[in-house]
Amino acid sequence: MKALDRVMLLIGLLMFAGAGLALVMTPTKKITSESDKVNLEKMIPESFGGWKIDTSIVPVLPNPELLAKLEKIYNQTLARTYINSKGLRVMLSIAYSDDQNEGMNIHRPEICYPAQGFDILKTVAAELVTQYGKLPVTRLLAQQRARSEPITYWVIVGDRITYFGLAHKLAQLRYGLTGKVADGMLVRVSSIDRDENGAYQLQQEFLEAMLAGMSEKDRVRIAGRFGV
């Protein structure tokens, strides 16, 4: 009887230790400080390499229900359309949060486009070769009736570019286990185009021009440290 009580006490103590361990392990330190806070509006130049802002088209946004949820998760979102000298348009959408979590999934194009009645016809992991290195991206083909919209996107956790899913969680863990809270960003470009490959080519040109038009520091923010 006495011995058994000791067993119960030991188990109870172990449990308290487990709860304490969880408390100690919880990351609290945000890697972005107040001073170098991201400002998406300023970070992405209004014009670069022959591209400038075009106000006639607004990129696809999550539906209002989702948007309400998004506002809780994201500190900042940016939605712009750029046009080049040939009159070709590329839509850019960026979502940023200084506290990365599961909720990032909501802005995932695979989820946000179908929610608007788009079909996702293809999802392919691809590599975008830029002058700064290879950027691992995901390419989607979304379609809604006559509107065919090829999409290129990537997601950043801290200073690393990653894919959604398990890799994303692992990237968060890399920070979390060292007590840090990583920030996160989702960068998406798309264009309305029936010619899928042509659209990806255009998006590539656009992204290269955009990265070239940014400062080194902002480029790392937007695209992570890649291709090293």
Partner: peptide, 12 residues
């Protein structure tokens, strides 16, 4: 308990 601590602290 270790699984719990990992999950609880890292939001899994």
């Amino acid at each position: 308990l270790l699984l719990y601590a990992l999950g609880r602290s890292q939001g899994i």
